[in-house]
Design a protein around this nucleic acid. Structure first.
Lengths: 255, 255
DNA sequence: CATATCAAACAGATTTCGTGTTCGATAACT
DNA sequence: AGTTATCGAACACGAAATCTGTTTGATATG
């Protein structure tokens, strides 16, 4: 963990750039009360993380409408809720199971929650893989594939082939949108194909999602809600949505 | 990079434990001129890296005869030579090639040397994969498999399947032993199988190795020297060995 | 039960890291 | 081409984190 002050400033910068669309270095310096040099150094870091785009004199948001915010941003968002969801999800897994864990920030927390268990785990992102290496009791299995920049989600034919060769007890799937009408949806088409493959190779499918996903529908359709066995979500999930899911035969767990 | 003093002390401890076989905390404290508490904290760290085994009152070496030293130890060993070998190897690769890069510390440096090139690269260890993520021009391809603890070399049927599905221009292979008589050998049997698979899926095979490997022969036979197209090694490689390789039709490059 | 070893907690010292300033270099604009 | 603003590197100061040693109570060993 680095200095708090700089982390705050980074968030301030990304938020401001997001809202305004673009801001000059001097404006950001005034806004944060720090020097322009510090802003430049910050922008360099943030641009490297894919959070914004740098240009001479300032920075602009590279967030288009309907696009997914970058991984580095979502990672620290709603962390407590994600941790609670992850812990509750881990409770649904029995020792000795073989589990495939999807990409995304919520699933990364699930992977962390599983790291001390006696399990066979195949993570679908390099972030989760790195979080699991060195776990003593855990048998780690990596799929092949192409890691997408930032997200480090593994996709492509190699990933699909790896999944097709295996049968898991449980698949833990993240999503970008989930509701009874549109089903489970994802922003990235390649990701969607992998999610489908993971679900197909598991006996039981658990979706993990924070409440915000219920009011969203992303581009790529993955599966209808009825394909899920359980959904683990936050306590602030809207009642009508969870009831609609229950009606579709899904076990909903709120934490 | 952390404080120099502690790094020196860590090396001092591992070396002493290696030589003596086992040493008490008090002996190590006297040897290094630091307090016992510091030694205990060091031993905890070193044991976590797999460099030695902890027991009440001291620590012992877990290095058996003929076994490979742990990754964390080899990583900083002869780094300059490895970098030179890696740079020379990178010079043999043309832009646009598809390259598979083996596991091991020397190949990790090769991966780093390739990270700014316009290439398709499949690393066979998670260490190299992590070194390559985020490289802008590089197309990164990951094989599936089980990462071996410490080494993080990917092995097993998934890795073999990933390799079997692809055809590379060049395979860059590390080794534990290499000479004209015994061919290319490895300590780990699973690794050996992967090296063979990587070689089989590439048109051209380049072996990278420091001079010490020429006088060693490891347990698992991978391939005869004649299966290699080139060998890149240090300038201190023994003449008789390099001549024998040349006689077998291998292009030897000393740097 | 006695003794040695250990781990946690605290405090001081050391180092690293973040920040601001200055200055020469570089890029954009007229 | 000239002018102006922006940038990046270098240096210095201050703050924060890290490392180390001591103490003390807990734990394991014989």
């Amino acid at each position: 963990m680095k200095g708090m002050a700089s982390a705050d400033r980074h968030r301030q910068i990304t938020d401001a750039v997001r809202q305004t669309g673009q801001l000059s270095v001097s404006e950001l310096a005034e806004l944060t009360g720090s020097s322009e040099m510090t802003i430049r150094r910050d922008l360099e870091i943030l641009a490297e993380q894919g959070l914004l785009e740098r240009y001479r004199g300032g920075a602009r948001s590279l967030l288009l409408r309907g696009e997914e915010p970058p991984f580095a941003l979502r990672e620290h968002d709603e962390l407590e809720i994600k941790r609670r969801i992850a812990a509750a999800t881990a409770d649904l897994i029995a020792d000795g199971e073989a589990v495939v864990v999807d990409s995304g920030t919520t699933c990364l927390e699930v992977a962390r929650a599983l790291s001390h268990r006696r399990l066979t785990v195949m993570p679908l992102s390099l972030h989760a893989a790195n979080a699991l290496v060195g776990a003593p009791q855990l048998k780690l299995l990596l799929p092949g594939g192409e890691p997408r920049p930032g997200e480090l989600a593994l996709t492509g034919p190699l990933t699909e082939a790896s999944l097709a060769a295996l049968r898991f007890d449980t698949a833990i799937i993240g999503c970008c949108g989930l509701n009874a009408a549109d089903g489970l949806t994802a922003y990235d088409l390649a990701d969607a194909a992998i999610k489908r493959a993971a679900m197909a190779s598991a006996r039981r499918v658990i979706a993990v999602t924070d409440a915000a996903k219920f009011s969203r529908t992303a581009l790529a359709f993955v599966a209808p809600a009825s394909a899920l066995h359980s959904v683990v979500t936050g306590s602030d999930a809207p009642d009508d949505q969870t009831e609609a899911l229950s009606a579709a035969g899904v076990v909903v767990r709120r934490v």
